[in-house]
Amino acid sequence: MIIHMRPAISIFIVFTILTGILYPCLVTVIAQSLFPHQANGSLIRREDHTIGSSLIGQSFTSPKYFWGRVSATSPSPYNAASSSGSNLGPTNVALTSAVQDRVNALKQYDTTKGLVPVDMVTSSASGLDPHISPAAAEYQVTRIAKSRNLSEEKLRDLVAQCTQGREFGLLGEPRVNVLELNIALDKDKSSELPPNE
């Protein structure tokens, strides 16, 4: 073993320089020059400050905003410095009671709707999922229309603008970006908020 130590150590140093320093640095340089927006986290800026990343969800609980997936990160939901799923197993009572709580929270504002889309009541894998399904967005339209005094048609237009279909018509699932949708809602001049909101 001893006779192999010199080649082992020296070739390890060569690999460390090549794959641990040169390679990541080269990728960083190319990434920062070709795709600076993506490489830095796809951040959304308003005036002089950053209000989010279009790839990272935020927590919304007010009835005037679209809500995203349930987030299991701690200590606060959508903690992007510590991603985590719930890891609740399928036969865990804690899972069914969390789903029940979320169903109740949604029904509190709107009793007219039928079944709740499953992605609305379950935790995402990352705790940072920026998307909900189009069904989940549609489910919330009535609530938001009521609390913002907006027509449902107008809201559906906004939802459609923030909806992405399958990539190349094929890959993945159709989805609505919740943060972008809520930013669009706040920007919309006709969406008059009640005073003090």
């Binding site: 997936r69 799923g85 719930s86 890891n87 609740l88 399928p90 899972l95 889309p117 499953v118 992605d119 379950t122 935790s123 995402s124 894998a125 990352s126 999922d129 998307h131 909900i132 399904s133 189009p134 069904a135 989940a136 699932e173 989805r175």
Partner: peptide, 11 residues
């Protein structure tokens, strides 16, 4: 919607 068991999955 994709439906199914969405607990712990991304949309």
């Amino acid at each position: 919607q994709s439906g199914g068991n969405m607990e712990g999955k991304e949309t």
